[in-house]
Amino acid sequence: MNMEHYIIQTVMGLIGSVAFAVLFGIYDRKLIWIAFGGGAGWAVYLVCTSGGHSRFVGLFISALCIAAFSEILSRVIKAPVIMLLVPMLIPEIPGGDLYYTMYYLVQGNYTEFGNYANQVLAEAGAIALGIILASYAAKLIFSVHAHAKQYVELRERKNEEECYKE
């Protein structure tokens, strides 16, 4: 696998993400963000796997990055997270392996079926875990932020009341 192949693959993944986004009813400027996220997510996966990690670690880390990016972006441009997240994840979706799993099941080749079934579940699980971790981290950060804000306001009010008493 050479560099040229990686670049072609990333660009093709990016085009696939954008086309799926259009199919899912997104027509405005968000497509640019989705193109960026889809391409960058696959680039992260390629960097991880060529750095010697297994493909599950690669998928997990790239899903984590994509989910974190779409959580932040959704709060900046005020859009639902899911509409950014799902198109961006298209290159990582294990559709091909899911097909081979079922293909070997239909053919009656149970050894290959078992291998592929394990692989698909592990891949989808790695992606799902990445998404969940990022979304809970975002929730945690924002709730800590809200609590801190509340605390500061409460304290200011107390100070004002004390001033008033004096």
């Binding site: 298209i90 979706i93 294990p94 091909g96 899911l98 097909y99 989808a124 799902a128």
Partner: peptide, 21 residues
């Protein structure tokens, strides 16, 4: 494989695992 990605429910499988977690 290019055509399969359009009909195979890969997104659904991933999001079902996400719902479960």
């Amino acid at each position: 494989i290019g055509n399969i990605m359009l009909v195979i429910p890969g997104i659904q499988l991933t999001s079902s695992l996400r719902d479960m977690i």
